[in-house]
Nucleic acid binder design. Structure first.
Lengths: 152, 152
DNA sequence: TTGTAATCCTCGTTTAAACGACTATCGTTC
DNA sequence: GAACGATAGTCGTTTAAACGAGGATTACAA
C-alpha cells in the first residue's frame, strides 16, 4: 500500500520531492522504532547507546574522546556527556581523564559492554536482514547510492 | 563522501542491508534536523506539529478525532492529547467535545493555524526542493518505490 | 610570564517523548 | 435497565532530548 493511502491522503503530492520527503520520514521512523523496541527487549538500551558501544569498542585501548564519539555517531546527539554518564553507570564503559591534556576525557569499552555487543550481534544482523533483506542487493545498493548522492 | 568515511568507519560493512540501515538512519536524521531547524526559525513549531496542522486543516469543518490524527501522522506519536494541548494553547487549533458521543473530542483548524500553514507553504516547498531536488525525478521515484517496497 | 583566546567537557534547566494507569462514555447482552 | 466489555481520550511519572551557560585546562601572543 502506498504511503498516500496509509495516511489517508487524498490530495496529490505537489512534487516528487514532497512525496520522497514523506516516504523517507515514515520509513526511517518505522525502521528506528522497530529497532529501538528490539534493542530494548534485548538489553534495555537505545539505538544511540548501541552506536556508542560499537564506536568505543572499535577504538580499543586507545579509547575515544567525547568529540570523537560525537563525530562518529550515525545520528547526531547534542549531549554526549550525559549519554556516556548513563552508559558508565551501567558498567558498559569506563572513563578516564587524559594525563597529558587534562581537558579531555577518554572512554573505553568495559568487559560487560564488550559482552553486550557480542550478545547483540546476531539479533542486530537478523534485524537488518529481516527489515531490509526483502529486496535484492542491487536495489539496496541503488538506494544507498541515491541517499548518498543527496549529500544531506 | 561516503557515509563510511563520514563516520570514520574503517571496517567493511557486514552486508548491504547493514550499510543501507546506516545510510537511511543518517539521511533521515539530517533531513529532519534541518527541517526542524527551519520550522523553528520560521514559527517555533516542530515537524509533528506542522504535520498535525495540515491534517486538521485538511479535515475542514468536520474536524478530526485524536485517533484519526494519530493514524494520519507520518511519524508515530504516543501522546496526541498533549501534542494538541500545546497547539491549542498557541491558538492554532480548537477542540470541542462531540455532542453525539461524548467520549470523542474533535480538533478543528483555527484561523491563526490556517494562516500559519499558508505562511509556511513557500518555505516548506523550497526546503524539499533544496534538499531533495538535487537529483532528477526519475531517481527520486525509484527511491520512493524502493522504500515503499520495503513495507516498513 | 601573563593575559587572552581556544578547546574540551560538564551541568542546569526547559521541553518533549514514552509508557501505563486511569476516567468517562457508549454499545451490547441478558 | 444493570452489568460488562470496548472505545476515546486524559493524565502522572519517568526518562531523555535540546539548548545554552559555565568551568577547567591548554595554546598562543605580546
Amino acid at each position: 500500500m502506498a504511503l498516500k493511502d496509509q495516511i489517508h491522503q487524498t490530495k496529490p503530492y505537489r512534487s516528487v520531492a514532497d512525496e520522497a520527503f514523506l516516504v523517507i520520514q515514515r520509513s526511517a521512523d518505522r525502521l528506528m522504532r522497530t529497532f529501538a523496541q528490539m534493542l530494548k527487549e534485548q538489553a534495555e538500551l537505545t539505538p544511540v547507546q548501541y552506536n556508542v558501544l560499537r564506536i568505543v569498542r572499535g577504538a580499543g585501548d586507545e579509547g575515544r574522546t567525547c568529540g570523537e564519539i560525537a563525530e562518529r555517531l550515525v545520528t547526531a546527539d547534542p549531549d554526549v556527556t550525559r549519554l556516556l554518564d548513563r552508559m558508565v553507570k551501567r558498567g558498559w564503559i569506563e572513563r578516564r581523564r587524559c594525563k597529558h591534556d587534562r581537558r579531555v576525557v577518554r572512554s573505553y569499552i568495559a568487559a560487560p559492554g564488550s559482552a553486550l555487543i557480542d550478545q547483540l550481534e546476531q539479533p542486530v544482523s537478523a534485524f537488518t536482514k529481516d527489515q531490509l533483506g526483502t529486496i535484492d542487493d542491487k536495489r539496496l545498493r541503488q538506494l544507498i547510492a541515491t541517499l548518498e548522492a543527496l549529500n544531506l
